[in-house]
Amino acid sequence: MRKSLRKPSFGLALAATLMAICVVVLGSFTRLSHAGLGCPDWPTCYGHIWAPQTAIDIAIANETYPEIPVNLAKTWPEMVHRYLATGLGLFIVALVIMAIRHRREHNQPLKLPLLLLCLVLLQGAFGAWTVTLKLWPQVVTAHLLGGFTTLTLLAILTLRLSGNRFSAFAQIKQFHKPRQLAAWTLAVVLMQIFLGGWTSANYAALACTDFPKCQTQWWPEADFETGFDFAHPIGPNYEGGKLAVPARTAIHLSHRIGAIVASVFVLGLAWALIGVRQRGWAALLVGLLAVQVALGISNVVFSLPLSVAVLHNLGGALLLVTVALINVLLNRKDPIYV
Score class of each variant (00 low, 15 high):
P8K: 05
A13R: 08
M19C: 14
V23D: 14
A35N: 02
D41T: 08
P43N: 12
C45V: 05
G47Y: 01
D57R: 13
I60L: 13
A61R: 01
Y65N: 04
I68Y: 00
P69C: 06
W76F: 08
M79G: 06
V80S: 14
G87R: 04
G87D: 08
M98Y: 02
R104M: 03
P109G: 03
L114C: 10
L119C: 06
L119Y: 00
L122I: 08
A128W: 11
K134A: 05
V140Q: 10
A155P: 04
L157P: 04
S162P: 10
G163T: 05
G163W: 06
R165T: 13
F166S: 14
A168K: 08
F169A: 08
F169P: 07
A170E: 14
Q174N: 13
P178A: 08
A183W: 06
A187H: 02
L190C: 15
I193Q: 12
F194P: 03
F194E: 03
G196H: 09
W198C: 07
A201W: 00
L206N: 01
C208V: 02
D210L: 04
F211C: 12
Q215K: 13
E221K: 14
E221I: 11
F224N: 02
T226F: 02
P233G: 00
P236H: 05
G241V: 13
L243Y: 07
L243I: 11
V245S: 14
S254F: 11
H255R: 10
I257V: 14
G258R: 09
A270Q: 10
W271G: 12
R277N: 11
Q278I: 04
A290W: 01
V293M: 15
F302K: 11
L306R: 10
V308E: 12
H312T: 06
A317R: 11
L320F: 10
N327H: 07
V328Q: 08
L330D: 06
R332P: 05
D334E: 01
I336H: 13
